[in-house]
Amino acid sequence: MAKEQLAYDEFMKGLWRENPVFVQVLGLCPLLAVTNSAINGLAMGLASFFVLLGSSILVSLFKSYIPKQVRISCFIIIIATFVTVVDYTLAAALPVIHKELGAFIPLIVANCLILGRMEAFASRNTLRMSVADAFGMGAGFLFALVSLGAVREILGVGELFGIALFGANFEPWVIMILPPGGFITLGVMLLYFNWLEEKKNKIDKQLATEDGVN
């Protein structure tokens, strides 16, 4: 029971409390580059999710066999293998999306989020916890990519996952599918998350002082 609770906690940590994008502000390169539509965000998110999960499992399994002097090289080899698998699979199965994402699929290797989780979590925790962590962080990253892509697609072309939302007379916000739109949307979302955090802290503080009085 306690174990279940802990694993769930790790998952929620990645998805929300320590969201890799909105709280840790990691992995912004692919985030800003490919989120000009929700579907691209989804594809990128799933690809990263798969790489993160697979690498976490392997690193966690072999953590005691990997000497710490060569751990980074080993992590990179493991990550790169999964990325290559994703790259070829996408090129074969979904050539259109593969073309859209272009160089950013191979660049998942360099995503600091993934190497960061290997170093900070998977190489120090049990398989079970690492899987929970990878699920949480991967889902958090996916959530960020899709929500950013959705906002930009809705405003930028008036569609969501390619389905027109506003009819023919929609005036697209061209900037939203251009790079500045990515920065503006991300900025507004970070603003929102910081505001939530601040509000939560205020409430916690209030609760703490009330407790103190009692």
């Binding site: 916000w173 061209v174 939203m176």
Partner: peptide, 10 residues
């Protein structure tokens, strides 16, 4: 600048 980049035609 925002408006020009967003609604270039209008």
């Amino acid at each position: 600048a925002f408006l020009l980049a967003t609604f270039p035609i209008a």
